[in-house]
Simulated assay, not measured.
Amino acid sequence: MRWSVLDAPLDSSGRGRGERWAPAALRSAGLLGRLGAADAGAVDALVTDPTRDPDTGVIGVDQVRRAGRAIAVRVTELLGTGRHPLILGGDCAILPGTLQGLPAGFDLWFLDAHLDFEDGRTSPTGEAADMDLSIVTDHGPAGLLDREGPLVDPDQVHVLGHRVPDRDTADGMEAVRVDPAVHRVPADRLRGPDAAAMGRALAVGTTPAWLHLDLDVLDPLVLPAVSYPEPGGLDWDDLTALAGPLVRSGRLLGMSVTDFNADEDPDGRHAERIAAVLAELLSD
């Protein structure tokens, strides 16, 4: 596969959190050289406004929209030249822009500790990274996308590795319910041989697919350098066993990698491990 690495340093908290520095840290760990990938540069995806918009409930909403448009343009350009984009976030708020850049009709393989199905009312933070999956399936705040309707059919979304269930009404917050058409396989069903079996099962088919990897799908014991760690996650072997068949399926349009918090990796050892695993997964 002909990979092109594109930086999208979007931190949807608007406060300059460590995800903003993740692309630079992974580049410093030698990711491009390990992959033999082309350098596609960076998009203007910075969010510096920490204000929560009263209408949408989204922090820095105008900057989030701008970042999404910029990412979409570059994804479309790269696919048009026969390249496979590898987008380095940033946090999961890069997903709507990414999917806006794809041709219609694809599966989404979504590896994440969280369901990301909040909206402007239910999100406790206001970060678009709480809402990315609800946005792309047309359940999120209105007006964040340049077109109406879902970017991906909920029935074509496969959420893998989550540990956080739908939230019932509590502490004054509204309940969060994921569209029942979304396929969900929690982390406790992706251990050891089950991870490889799930990867092989999902790899079957001919529909193009996008792979989204939020690194908090990993257990914090193996990768603590994320912003919202959740116990009970996958280990590195589980991740490679699950994702390997997806990458080799022949269906993959590209991949996004998010939620590496470089602030939590002062000696660079976690960036080194991430780069090594990505190279193992994605190299021909």
Rank of each mutant, 00 (worst) to 15 (best):
L6F: 07
L6Y: 02
A8N: 00
S12P: 02
G14K: 09
R17G: 13
R17D: 15
P23F: 04
A24G: 14
A25R: 02
L26E: 00
R27H: 15
L32R: 13
A38I: 09
V43K: 02
D44W: 12
T48M: 10
T51W: 14
P54V: 04
G57R: 05
V73Y: 12
E77L: 11
E77V: 10
G80S: 12
G82H: 04
H84Y: 14
P85M: 07
G90D: 00
P96E: 11
G101H: 12
L102I: 11
F117V: 15
E118F: 15
T125L: 10
A128L: 15
S134M: 03
V136W: 01
V136L: 09
L144C: 08
L144P: 05
E148T: 15
P150R: 07
L160S: 08
R167C: 05
E174W: 12
A175K: 03
A175S: 08
D179C: 05
D179A: 10
A195C: 02
A196T: 11
A196F: 07
A197T: 05
M198V: 11
T207K: 14
H212W: 04
L213W: 04
V217L: 08
L218W: 01
D219F: 01
E230W: 08
D237N: 13
D237Y: 10
D238A: 03
A243Q: 07
P245L: 11
G250N: 10
V257D: 00
D267W: 04
G268C: 02
